[in-house]
C-alpha cells in the first residue's frame, strides 16, 4: 500500500517536474519572441525614421521650390508685365492727343484705358496673392492685416485681427510665409466650407515663441473624425506647419464654429 502511495507520489513529482519544464519552455519562448519582436521593431523604426526624414526633406524642397516659383512669377508679373502695361497706358494717353475730337476714337480709347486699368489691377492682385510684398518688407502682422482687409472688402465676411506687437518679426522669413499661407487656407476653409460670417485672428508673440488663435462662427465639424475626413487644405496646413516645427490644435463641434491654435517655437 505504502509502495503504491510512494509510486503515486513519484509520479506526481514527475508530472510537476514536467509542468515546470513546460512552463520554463513557454517563458523562454515568450522571452525569445519579445526580444525578437523588439529587435525587428527597432529595425523597422530606424527604417521608418529614415523614410520620414527623406520624405520631410522632399516635402521641404517641394514647398520651397513651389514658393520660389511663386516668387519668380510674382516678380515677372510685377516687374515685367506690370511695367509694360503701365507703358501701354501712357502710350494710350499719347495716342489720345493724335485722335483729336473724334467721338468713336475717344470711346474706343476710353474702353482700352478701362480694360488696361482692370488688367493692371488684376496683374497686381495676382502678383500680391502669389507673394505679398508686405510680408517680406514689413512682416507677418502687416501682411495679415492686408490679407484681412482684402477679404473684408469682398463684403462676404467680417474679419477681426488682433496683434500684440505689429512690428514683431520672426527670425526666419520662411516661417512667416508658411504661417501666412496657413492663415490664408484657414480663412478660405471658413468661407468655403464653414460658411462663416465672422472670423477672429489673434497673434501673440512670446519671448521665444508665437501663438496664433483663429476662430470662426461657421458650421464647424466633428473633431473626433478629423483624421479620417481631412481634406487637401487641412493636410496642406499640417505639412506647412510641420515644415517649420509648429503644431496646430483644432476645437470644434458641428454648428459651433472652429477654433484653431497654432504654436510655434522658433528656437526649437
Amino acid at each position: 500500500m505504502d509502495q503504491v502511495l510512494l509510486q503515486n507520489r513519484e509520479l506526481a513529482a514527475l508530472v510537476l517536474f514536467g509542468v515546470s519544464i513546460m512552463l520554463l519552455l513557454a517563458l523562454a519562448f515568450v522571452l525569445f519572441v519579445s526580444l525578437s519582436q523588439r529587435r525587428i521593431l527597432k529595425e523597422q523604426m530606424n527604417a521608418q525614421a529614415l523614410e520620414i526624414e527623406y520624405r520631410e526633406e522632399l516635402l521641404r524642397s517641394t514647398i520651397l521650390t513651389q514658393e520660389e516659383e511663386r516668387r519668380r512669377i510674382a516678380k515677372d508679373l510685377h516687374d515685367d508685365l506690370g511695367s509694360k502695361l503701365n507703358v501701354l497706358k501712357l502710350n494710350i494717353y499719347q495716342v489720345k492727343k493724335f485722335t483729336g475730337d473724334s467721338a468713336p476714337a475717344e470711346e474706343l480709347i476710353g474702353d482700352v484705358k478701362s480694360l488696361l486699368d482692370q488688367t493692371i489691377h488684376t496683374t497686381r492682385r495676382i502678383s500680391h496673392e502669389l507673394l505679398p510684398p508686405t510680408l517680406q518688407d514689413f512682416g507677418l502682422p502687416t501682411a495679415l492685416e492686408e490679407l484681412c482687409d482684402g477679404f473684408q472688402r469682398t463684403g462676404s465676411v467680417d474679419i477681426h485681427l488682433e496683434v500684440d506687437d505689429p512690428d514683431a518679426r520672426l527670425p526666419q522669413v520662411n516661417s512667416e510665409l508658411q504661417l501666412f499661407r496657413v492663415v490664408q487656407e484657414l480663412i478660405n476653409n471658413s468661407i468655403r466650407h464653414g460658411e462663416a460670417r465672422q472670423i477672429g485672428i489673434r497673434l501673440h508673440h512670446g519671448k521665444e515663441s508665437l501663438k496664433l488663435h483663429y476662430y470662426d462662427n461657421g458650421k464647424g465639424f466633428d473633431v473626433t473624425r478629423l483624421a479620417e475626413k481631412k481634406g487637401l487644405g487641412l493636410k496642406n496646413i499640417d505639412s506647412r506647419l510641420h515644415l517649420i516645427g509648429a503644431t496646430i490644435r483644432y476645437e470644434s463641434e458641428p454648428g459651433a464654429g472652429v477654433t484653431a491654435t497654432v504654436d510655434l517655437n522658433p528656437v526649437s
Partner: peptide
C-alpha cells in the same frame, strides 16, 4: 491610435 498626431501630407510629395 484614434488620437494620433497629424501625419505628413503624402499627396504633396512629388
Amino acid at each position: 491610435s484614434a488620437q494620433a498626431p497629424p501625419q505628413l501630407n503624402q499627396e504633396l510629395l512629388p
